[in-house]
Simulated scan of single mutants.
Amino acid sequence: MGLQSSISSNHCVIKLDQDRLALTREFDILVLPGVSMLTLGGFLEPLRIVNALTHREAFRWRVLSLEDDTFGCSNGFHIDEDVLLGTEGCQRCSLVVGGELTSSTERQLVINWIRRRKRFGNGIGYIGPCARLFAEAGVLVSEQFVVSQSEKSAFSECYSHLLPHEGLFCRERDVLSCVDGTAALDFAASFIEQDMGRSLALAVLQQCGQSKLRAGSDQPQNVAGDLHESRHKALKTAIRLMSEHIENPLSMEMVAKKAHISRRQMERLFKIHTALTPSKYYQHMRLHHAKSLLRQTDMRVLDIALACGFSNVSTMKVAYRREFGQGFAS
């Protein structure tokens, strides 16, 4: 065992090997327009805390942007960049933190950057809704990866041959991946644990308000009020069946039969737990799937209608306007 040093966090003494204290891990972080500050801060803040506790740069990062000077977050906040994309080297681990790219030119620029970093860099990965960019870049083949909830619908339609892993993050293969939100904390903690030890990683998470280390295979926390979750087993089965048959909707009788309950029992469960009838809930699910595809893909509207279980565009348009209070461009 090498020489050890001690640091204090929340009145606890944590011993670290001197060899570990000599290490520095470096990241280049490409931030896309409209990034979530919760996701970006969730990854960077634990690394900052480690540097503060150890009084050295155990972790070093540069923020890259497509825009000159500053970039905008989803809440309207603007942050200064460190480096403009294309002017940096390739020596660091590269991470893309998801937002939305509306320009095809910017999209191609990022895809080319991903390919270049995959080939010549020191590791590549993403945090948040970037799986489609990496799939389009052709770097997810033979990889384990996760997909954020916000882009699952679009990803499954566009890349049905690629099967995502269910969990918070993946670090097992060449391409690193992490879903958005608080999972970024756990992703950062996995690097801290690897480089500095489990005790320090846990202490840092506790300073961020999280009581335990979550593994990459753990499931994302449910959002309060999420209609897709319920403690009732039969209801969960019915909802799962609906989600698995978006394109070719099942009859309510078939859903009840496969969930091993009567149609009347199913009606009552949905009313109690979702305040909707089963058929209304099913249509709600299909329309939200359609909304994701309209926003996140270049699919034809007719193809989206068929993929969401509607026989034609007109039928989907009427239901869409009734659900969201506005239509969509054909």
Rank of each mutant, 00 (worst) to 15 (best):
A135M: 04
E136P: 00
A137Y: 00
V139N: 00
V139C: 01
L140I: 01
V141T: 07
V141C: 04
E143M: 06
Q144D: 03
Q144S: 04
F145L: 01
F145R: 11
V146T: 06
Q149N: 02
S150H: 00
S150A: 02
E151I: 01
E151W: 00
K152G: 00
A154E: 00
S156W: 01
E157C: 04
C158K: 00
C158P: 00
S160P: 14
P164Y: 01
H165Q: 03
E166R: 11
E166W: 08
E166G: 03
C170N: 02
C170D: 02
R171N: 04
R171M: 02
E172N: 06
R173G: 01
R173E: 03
R173M: 02
D174C: 07
D174Y: 04
L176I: 03
G181N: 10
G181C: 06
T182D: 09
D186C: 12
F187V: 09
F187P: 04
A188N: 11
A188H: 10
I192Y: 10
I192M: 07
Q194C: 15
D195E: 11
G197F: 11
R198Q: 11
S199I: 06
S199C: 06
S199M: 06
L200G: 09
A203L: 08
C208T: 10
G209E: 10
Q210R: 14
L213S: 12
L213G: 14
R214C: 13
R214D: 11
A215K: 13
G216H: 09
G216E: 05
S217V: 11
D218E: 12
Q221M: 09
V223M: 04
A224H: 14
G225A: 10
G225N: 13
D226G: 14
H228P: 11
S230K: 12
K233T: 15
A234P: 06
L235H: 05
T237G: 12
I239D: 05
I239F: 05
M242H: 04
M242A: 07
M242W: 03
S243M: 13
E244N: 11
I246T: 08
N248R: 07
E253K: 05
E253M: 04
E253Q: 03
M254N: 10
M254T: 11
V255K: 14
V255G: 14
A256L: 09
A256D: 07
K257A: 06
K257T: 03
A259I: 12
A259E: 11
A259H: 10
I261C: 12
I261H: 10
R263E: 09
R263C: 07
E267W: 06
R268N: 08
